[in-house]
């Protein structure tokens, strides 16, 4: 098995606060790996450190053996990592298909000069890009909505569009940040199937931040638990559910029964 992403003692501090505290993770290729933890546990900061938005203060992040530290976000994208956001961040005033086309930016080559002259290569590239965007739109089930402005799409469709946009850069690793937040149980189930389909059909590795325990336990193969920036547990869903430290971190002391309910408590 190849290792897709590995972090070694990854640390990020803000002033006196250690948001990510020497986290070690190993994510196998083609896995669905979840990172969970209470609010403020440093999950999103962890993502930002991997994707180049933050420079880690210490430690290493390796993507297929090559270090990601010191790369800018756009360089990270070129390496093959793509992400979505906790609160959907689409280009709200561009159409759905344009959003995907922007996502393809890293795969296209046309320079500004070629774009002005519109060389045959650029014309073909644009045609292919549009075709690919349509396919992606179909893949996420938004076939008829391509010309809608992103902000006019229903919530679930926006989530899917954001994933389609992330897929457009042909990533090998996809980072999803709470993809089911704000969804009803039915939509959540759909999204779970969809995530699994992503992995199976496109054979990409998926790293997931999620609060909804049903999703986490349902689709993850491995789970890591962060609390106050530090990793307190790692293992299969079954192991995590039994781990007393995890239960304590989530619930304080008390009922160990309803992890699911706890996760739904307001932020």
């Amino acid at each position: 098995m190849t290792i897709a992403l590995e972090t070694r003692a990854l640390t990020k501090q803000f002033g006196g606060l250690t948001a990510v505290d020497s986290v070690d993770l190993v994510i196998q290729e083609n896995a669905i790996f979840s990172v969970i933890g209470p609010n403020g546990a440093g999950k999103t900061t962890f993502y930002n450190c991997i994707t180049g938005f933050y420079e880690p203060d210490a430690g290493e992040a390796l993507f297929y053996g090559k270090s990601l530290v010191g790369l800018t976000p756009d360089q990270v994208t070129y390496r093959g990592i793509s992400r979505t956001y906790q609160n959907i961040r689409l280009f709200a005033n561009m159409s759905a298909i344009e959003n995907i086309l922007v996502g393809e930016h890293a795969c296209l080559r046309a320079s500004w000069l070629e774009a002005i002259i519109r060389t045959p290569r650029v014309i073909k590239e644009e045609k292919d890009a549009l075709e690919k965007a349509r396919q992606l739109l179909n893949f996420v089930g938004l076939n008829s909505l391509g010309d809608q402005l992103a902000r006019n799409l229903p919530y679930g469709a926006q989530r899917r569009l954001e994933i389609a946009r992330a897929l457009a850069s042909q990533p090998r690793l996809l980072l999803l940040d709470e993809p089911t937040a704000g969804m009803n149980p039915h939509e959540t189930t759909d999204m779970m199937h969809f995530i699994r389909r992503l992995r199976d059909e496109l054979s990409i590795t998926i790293l997931l931040i999620e609060h909804d325990m049903r999703v986490v336990m349902g689709i993850s193969e491995q789970i890591a638990v962060l609390d106050y920036g530090a990793k307190i547990a790692e293992g299969t869903p079954a192991e995590i559910q039994r781990n007393p430290r995890v239960i304590e971190a989530y619930l304080g002391s008390g009922a160990a029964s309803g992890l699911n309910d706890a996760a739904k408590q307001p932020a």
Binding site: F53, E55, G70
Partner: peptide, 10 residues
């Protein structure tokens, strides 16, 4: 908004 300039990059 949330990008901290990396320190180590030359």
């Amino acid at each position: 908004p949330n990008v901290k300039p990396p320190a180590r990059r030359v």
